[in-house]
Simulated assay, not measured.
Amino acid sequence: MLGNYYKKNDVILHSMNKSVEIQDLGFKDYKDTWDYQEQLFKSIVDTKIKNRREDAGIETPNYFLFVEHPHVYTLGKSGDMSNMLLNEEQLTQKGATFYKINRGGDITYHGPGQIVGYPILDLDNFFTDIHKYLRFLEEMIILTLADYGLKAERSPGETGVWLDVGTPFARKICAMGVRASRWVTMHGFALNVNADLGYFDNIIPCGIRGKAVTTLNNELGVEKVDETEVKEKLLKHFTLLFEAQLNYQTA
C-alpha cells in the first residue's frame, strides 16, 4: 500500500476508492434494472482496461443499488431449468416474468416486499477475494437480522443466509448470486422482508429440495416490517465490513 494507491509487482496501479454511491431505485422492472447494472458494470471495467493499457490512473467508482422488483423468476447460468415449475401460460397467470441471467446460482424469485441489493464494486478498491466478498455479504445480512433478535447462519455448501441450520426446520431468508469480472461485481442478494411466500411454491428455490423459505415479518410475527429501517441497518453493517464511505444519490 502507498498512500491511496496500491502496488502489484512494484507497479502503482490506481487509488483505492472506498466511496460507494448508494442509489435506491424504488419499484423497478427487473430487465430495466439488469440493463442499468450492466451499464455501470461496463463503465467500471472499461475504466480499468484504460488504466491498464494507458497507465491513466483514473479512480474507479463503486455503487450499491437497492430495488424492489415486480414478480420475477431468474435462473443463474449454472441453474437447472427443471427447477422452474411453471410454463409460460402459468407465468402470465401469476403476473410474473422469467429471465435466464449471467449470475451464479440457480433459480430464485424477486417480488414486492423483498429488499434486493446489487453492489457493483471494484474489489481492487477493497480486497480481491470473491469468497471473502460473498462471506461479507452474508455477514451483513446476519448482523442485520441479529438487530431484530434473530440468529441467522450460513449453511455449509449453500450460499445465502438461513435460520435453524442443521435442523428439520431450516429455512432460507436471503438468497445470493453474483457475477464478477476483472474484480468488478454485479447482481447480489435478495432479503425476504415482507414478501409473499406463495410465489416460492412455483420453483425449487436455488435448486435445493426439502427446505423452506421464510420472511422477516413472519419470523417476527408482525404484519409488516419497515423496509427503510432494514436498508439503514444493512448499510450500517456494509460500511463497517467493507470500511466503505457512503455517498447517497438519487437515481
Rank of each mutant, 00 (worst) to 15 (best):
L123W: 08
D147G: 06
Q37D: 04
K172N: 00
V184M: 02
E223H: 13
L240F: 00
E68W: 08
V67Y: 01
F169S: 11
Y199P: 04
T215W: 04
D24Y: 07
V225A: 05
A96D: 01
L134Y: 05
Y30H: 04
D124R: 15
L134D: 00
G157E: 01
I22C: 04
F98R: 04
L40E: 01
Y118K: 01
I49T: 11
Q249A: 14
K231H: 03
L13E: 04
K236L: 00
H131R: 15
V11H: 13
E243V: 02
L143H: 10
W162D: 01
M186E: 00
W162K: 02
A152Q: 08
A175T: 13
N202W: 14
A195S: 13
R52W: 11
E59Y: 13
G188T: 06
N17K: 07
F136E: 11
T33F: 11
L246C: 06
M186F: 09
G104P: 11
D196V: 12
I58E: 07
N102F: 09
Y109Q: 01
E232T: 12
L246M: 08
L220D: 05
Y118T: 01
K28D: 10
L143W: 09
A152D: 06
R182H: 14
N51D: 10
N218V: 11
I49K: 14
D24P: 10
G198N: 13
Y5D: 05
F169L: 15
N217P: 08
M140H: 06
V11L: 15
L246I: 09
A251F: 13
G104K: 07
G157L: 06
A251Y: 12
K211M: 07
N247L: 15
N217I: 14
V72T: 07
V193P: 00
S43K: 15
G198V: 09
L197I: 12
K77I: 14
H14C: 09
V45M: 06
R53V: 13
F242S: 00
D124A: 14
P168L: 00
V45P: 08
H110D: 02
I141M: 08
